[in-house]
């Protein structure tokens, strides 16, 4: 058992337990944040994606040891931001949401992508979504939503 700290949604928090525990389980079981979903448990589907020091990472593959003193932002934290609001609106406008299970992960992937590349091409968007599986939409409407939000004039990214 170890007691460590990390930054969760911009607040310093404590975790006590085995440092091999998956961040996903800590978020869901210890902090009651269930916006990160388990879809596959092996880093393929991206439903559990979170921002780890501003970059997309699968929380199902991240041991707590990696998280010590690092910054983790989940969909719950991100959803309070202005950037989130813009992405949310664009996802709604473009019909990018069906069953919704992959959606928080898609939002995280979008933010991670736009952080690095504010005006991505369609191909770059596809690369950015390569680790997020969606079985409902065929991806087109998600891609359209990301193109649209990245072409906004207020330069959020």
């Amino acid at each position: 058992m170890s007691r460590v700290e990390f930054i969760l949604n911009e607040k310093k928090v404590e975790f006590e337990g085995d440092l091999n525990k998956r961040l996903l389980d800590v978020l869901r079981d210890d902090f009651g944040l269930f916006g990160s979903k388990e879809g596959c448990g092996e880093g393929e589907c991206g439903a559990c994606a979170i921002l780890f020091n501003d970059e997309i990472v699968n929380s199902c593959l991240l041991p707590m040891a990696n998280v010590v003193n690092q910054r983790v932002m989940t969909i719950e934290g991100f959803s309070t931001t202005k950037k989130y609001k813009a992405i949310e609106q664009s996802f709604m406008d473009h019909g990018a949401v069906q069953c919704g299970y992959c959606t928080p992960g898609m939002i995280i992937a979008t933010e991670s992508l736009l952080n690095k590349n504010a005006k991505p091409t369609e191909e770059e968007i596809k690369d950015g979504l390569a680790g997020n599986l969606c079985r409902c939409t065929g991806y087109n409407m998600i891609i359209d939503a990301i193109i649209a939000v990245s072409r906004r004039e207020d330069d959020l990214w």
Partner: peptide
């Protein structure tokens, strides 16, 4: 080889 989420760690 891998998605961005994997490449980041």
């Amino acid at each position: 080889m891998a998605s961005p989420a994997i490449r980041h760690v």
